[in-house]
Design a binder for these strands. Structure first.
Lengths: 111, 111
DNA sequence: GGTCGTTATATTTGGTCGGAAATAACGATA
DNA sequence: TATCGTTATTTCCGACCAAATATAACGACC
């Protein structure tokens, strides 16, 4: 079994999974660019998919994680809400502890 | 964020080789029933899919995890090899520690 | 009013995945 | 030799998913 790595994924869920590393990275992209469109391009994700992710985040969480605006200066845009920031910061910590766990486990892989 | 659960998946990998909870449960089924066919039925999985999983496990690991026999008493069967047992026992421990991690994290979910 | 870039949404298209079914091979056993 | 239940493998088909495409709405700004 030597040479094997341990890997995994971790997410937050209510009834079905709805916030994992993918959504978090999308949120980070929106925070950085101020636009769903640009965040999607940066992740090489289709706008449609990105929008669907944002939509599901907004409808499934207690409060929207992303606030959007159509039209206006620069055609519109999107910003991460306070609630979104809460998720971002919490998930970052969780992810870090998980990576720590994975690193520990990787030391224990038997020969 | 109250009411959210933390969940995840964890697996072993080496470039393309991988071994996760699904394969482990299939292995357990084979160990219990002595047959790919019956293990698949118990998991409500098609024989084809189960066979493909077994095949990939056998070809991707250093040594086969499942030994199969066609024909003979009861038409044939399958048994988990020593190597398979090694994976089973190791993954069980890993999975248990991961569940422990998840349980700990679930206590820390902020309001 | 026209342009711009974005959000918002429906429709179509294409590729992949898995299930179903069919078939063969196998070896014990009667 | 015929039967049996399993492994082994191929072919076909439908379902699902995601990408691509198309279109509309919006509001600032010129």
């Amino acid at each position: 079994m030597v040479g094997l790595r341990i890997n995994g994924r971790i997410w937050l869920e209510a009834q079905d999974r709805f916030f994992g590393i993918g959504r978090m990275e999308l949120l980070e992209g929106i925070q950085r660019t101020g636009s769903i469109n640009q965040a999607a391009k940066a992740m090489k994700m289709s706008y449609k998919r990105a929008w669907e992710l944002v939509h599901s985040m907004n409808t499934q969480a207690d409060a929207p994680l992303v606030s959007t605006q159509t039209g206006g200066e620069k055609g519109g845009g999107a910003v991460v809400t306070e609630e979104g920031l809460k998720y971002l910061t919490y998930y970052r910590g969780l992810q870090e502890r998980f990576q720590q766990f994975l690193a520990e486990e990787n030391k224990k892989v038997p020969a």
